[in-house]
C-alpha cells in the first residue's frame, strides 16, 4: 500500500501510542484480573464495575475526565508537574494513557477468563512439590494463562488503535504528536474529496488489526501447545 510520508507518520505514531499503552497497562490489567478472579475481598463487585466503566461510558466522557484530572491544576496533573515536571496534555503519552484506559476492560476480561480456566488442582500439585505461592504463580499459573494474556493484549491493542473520542477530547488532534489513525481519518473526513486518504488510512487500520490477531494466534499456538487458541 502506497502511503505518503505524512500518512506513514500517522501509522508509526498509532503503533507507538498503542504499543506503549498496552505494554504499560498490561501488569495493571493482570493484577486487576487476578484480584477479580481469585480475590475474596469486600468491594470486589465495586472494583469490577469500575474496571468496566470505560466499556459503558461514552469515550468523550472518559476523555473529559482525563482532561480534568490531568490538567495542570487537576488533582493528578498538578502532582505530576510538581514531582516530575511533566504534563500529559497535548502529548502522545496522554494519547497512550487514553488508549490504555479504553483498552483496560477488554484486557481484564480476557485475562480473567483465562485465569479462571486455570485448574487450581494443578496449583495445589505445585505446592506439594515444594513450590511456594510465588513460584507456583510463575511456573504454573502464568504459563497456563499465557494465551489469555496474549489474547487480552491483542484485543487491547486493536481497541486502542481505534480509540477516538477519549483521545481527541483529552489531548486534541495534533499532527505528529497526538493525531493517531482514527483522528487522521476524522480530519480527512472533514475535507471533501479526501476519500482516497480515508480509504488508505482505514485500510491500514484493518491491516494492522488483522496482522495483530494472526500474530497472536500463532504465538498462542506455540506457547500453549495443543488446544490453546486465542480466538
Amino acid at each position: 500500500m502506497l502511503l505518503s510520508a505524512q500518512e506513514w507518520g500517522v501509522v508509526a505514531l498509532s503503533a507507538k501510542v498503542s504499543g506503549v499503552a498496552i505494554l504499560g497497562v498490561l501488569p495493571l490489567a493482570f493484577a486487576l484480573a487476578f484480584a477479580l478472579a481469585r480475590g475474596r475481598f469486600r468491594g470486589r463487585v465495586l472494583l469490577d464495575a469500575l474496571v468496566h466503566l470505560p466499556l459503558v461510558l461514552p469515550p468523550v466522557v472518559i476523555g473529559w475526565m482525563l482532561l480534568v484530572a490531568f490538567a495542570p491544576a487537576g488533582p493528578i496533573g498538578a502532582w505530576l508537574w510538581r514531582l516530575f515536571g511533566v504534563t500529559l496534555l497535548f502529548r502522545w503519552t496522554g494519547a497512550a494513557l487514553a488508549a490504555a484506559i479504553m483498552a483496560l476492560p477488554l484486557m481484564v476480561r480476557a485475562i480473567r477468563l483465562s485465569l479462571e480456566a486455570v485448574d487450581p488442582r494443578l496449583e495445589q500439585a505445585a505446592r506439594t512439590l515444594g513450590a511456594g505461592p510465588w513460584a507456583t504463580f510463575w511456573r504454573v499459573t502464568l504459563p497456563l494463562c499465557a494465551p489469555g494474556i496474549v489474547a487480552g493484549a491483542v484485543l487491547g491493542f486493536a481497541r486502542s488503535l481505534g480509540e477516538f473520542g477519549a483521545t481527541i477530547t483529552f489531548v486534541s488532534n495534533i499532527p505528529g504528536e497526538t493525531q493517531t489513525l482514527p483522528l487522521a481519518i476524522y480530519a480527512a473526513l472533514q475535507v471533501p474529496g479526501s476519500d482516497a486518504t480515508v480509504l488508505r488510512l482505514a485500510g491500514v487500520a484493518v491491516l494492522l488489526s488483522v496482522l495483530a490477531l494472526v500474530a497472536s494466534e500463532l504465538l498462542a499456538r506455540r506457547q500453549g501447545g495443543k488446544g490453546a487458541h486465542v480466538l
Partner: peptide, 20 residues
C-alpha cells in the same frame, strides 16, 4: 506448615501432570 514445606510426595488420583 504450608504444603511446600511438608515434603509430601503426593501422587494424586487424577495425576495432575502439568500440561504446559
Amino acid at each position: 506448615l504450608p504444603p511446600e514445606r511438608r515434603a509430601a510426595g503426593y501422587v494424586f488420583q487424577d495425576l495432575r501432570l502439568f500440561p504446559h
